[in-house]
Simulated assay, not measured.
Amino acid sequence: MTFLARLVMALLSLVVLGAATYLIVTWYRGDWLSDGDDLRRVREDWRLWTGLGLGAWSVFGRWLITPLPPQPPVRLRWCSDV
């Protein structure tokens, strides 16, 4: 890989990790909802699951992608029998 491609991939992995952190922190903080005298915290579950998924992909992504075999090169042959 060239230097530029490695730099782009490193920045992309940091973006994925940052997005996971942001989603988990915003889920933890939640939103405050007032129902008359009650004050309760409302959390959206999709933020937690998406953040955990992105975090897992950030940590374990290399081990998940590395064993996948690349596609074999396509060989073009000229057929004169047709």
Score class of each variant (00 low, 15 high):
residue 73 P to K: 15
residue 36 G to F: 01
residue 4 L to E: 12
residue 36 G to M: 01
residue 27 W to F: 11
residue 81 D to H: 12
residue 82 V to W: 08
residue 76 L to W: 05
residue 52 L to V: 09
residue 67 P to W: 04
residue 36 G to N: 01
residue 60 F to D: 07
residue 24 I to H: 03
residue 17 L to E: 08
residue 22 Y to N: 14
residue 52 L to R: 06
residue 11 L to F: 05
residue 46 W to L: 15
residue 13 S to W: 12
residue 64 L to D: 03
residue 67 P to H: 05
residue 76 L to P: 00
residue 27 W to N: 08
residue 40 R to Q: 13
residue 24 I to A: 07
residue 33 L to R: 12
residue 22 Y to H: 15
residue 72 P to N: 06
residue 82 V to K: 05
residue 76 L to V: 09
residue 26 T to M: 12
residue 15 V to A: 14
residue 57 W to P: 02
residue 11 L to Y: 02
residue 32 W to L: 09
residue 4 L to G: 07
residue 79 C to D: 15
residue 80 S to F: 15
residue 59 V to T: 03
residue 49 W to D: 05
residue 29 R to T: 01
residue 22 Y to V: 15
residue 80 S to N: 14
residue 15 V to E: 09
residue 62 R to T: 11
residue 50 T to G: 00
residue 24 I to L: 15
residue 36 G to L: 00
residue 13 S to L: 11
residue 15 V to F: 12
residue 39 L to M: 12
residue 44 E to P: 00
residue 56 A to C: 05
residue 10 A to L: 07
residue 29 R to N: 00
residue 72 P to Q: 12
residue 36 G to R: 02
residue 57 W to R: 10
residue 68 L to Q: 06
residue 81 D to N: 09
residue 19 A to D: 11
residue 80 S to L: 14
residue 66 T to E: 12
residue 68 L to F: 08
residue 54 L to E: 00
residue 29 R to E: 02
residue 18 G to L: 11
residue 79 C to P: 06
residue 70 P to Q: 03
residue 26 T to E: 13
residue 62 R to D: 10
residue 56 A to V: 04
residue 25 V to D: 09
residue 57 W to K: 07
residue 11 L to K: 03
residue 69 P to A: 02
residue 49 W to F: 15
residue 25 V to W: 11
residue 27 W to D: 03
residue 65 I to R: 08
residue 43 R to S: 04
residue 45 D to M: 15
residue 33 L to T: 11
